[in-house]
Write a protein that binds this DNA or RNA. Structure first.
Lengths: 135, 135
DNA sequence: GTATATGCAAAGTCTTTGCATCGTT
DNA sequence: AACGATGCAAAGACTTTGCATATAC
């Protein structure tokens, strides 16, 4: 189901602004701040208000279509929602942010539940270091 | 070595304000925001300026005596620096924040290096969920 | 046509900074 | 006495909100 349909199903409207934010995020090579999204949207069409970008992101977040991540620079960054979305490797050299693939999150959950009785719900792992290429 | 000595060794001065911030953090039961530290300091003596709290925290951070953590509520929280300081379990029921004990961070490092060639430097793991008592 | 979304500007929250004064060394 | 630290108020960065206007349905 596409976003337009999803929005309408939930009682919201599809607008050019929302479509643009969504398109930018889908084509993004990295995790973008609201302002970066704003810049990219504005490159394509006449200015869209920053407040509308924030409102759109909040809405898409509510619908679990996008997710905000904090990678340590204290600004919100946004990406499409997906299963591994809370697990980020940030290279301090090239700046690239990769999503972790694999079962590490499951390992962490099992470890915490078994060893500490802690029932993990949201696991947010951000690792800064050097990626394979930059080492 | 105590903080006063450490400060002076690095060319800084010990002041009542700095001592108070340090004392509050040592006695803290949880991870405090700058404002919470300010409140606790102010309970003990006449008002200390919030800006001085921030400046003191920045200084102690530089000296690796305290550390800022982001636990998801988007405000900086502060704790004494210690080996496991980047690994936090936050209970969504009682709000308690516990530090993880054990070798999980090492496991994560090994996993990332072995499977992905990623050399982890700083590992920040924040897990929200239910602690043993609240389950 | 009606209710929702946008633009604009103002306000809000947390944090930092400039500058005169105060206090530690 | 000298230089670093504090208090105060103002500014900064990022994000949210109120309200009139525009627009999707």
């Amino acid at each position: 189901m596409d976003v337009a349909t999803r929005l309408r199903d939930e009682g919201y409207r599809m607008t050019p602004q929302r479509q643009l934010v969504w398109d930018v995020l889908r084509q993004a090579d990295s995790h973008l701040t609201a302002e970066e999204i704003h810049d990219r949207v504005t490159e394509r069409v006449a200015d869209v208000n920053l407040a509308s970008i924030y409102r759109t992101l909040a809405l898409l977040d509510d619908l679990d279509l996008v997710k905000e991540v904090r990678l340590g620079d204290d600004r919100g960054r946004w990406e499409l929602a997906h299963p591994d979305d809370t697990f980020h490797l940030v290279c301090r050299d090239c700046g690239q942010v990769t999503h972790h693939e694999g079962d590490l999150v499951e390992q962490v959950r099992a470890h915490l539940l078994g060893g500490h009785g802690f029932a993990a719900e949201e696991v947010d792992l951000v690792v800064h270091g050097l990626c394979e290429r930059c080492r």
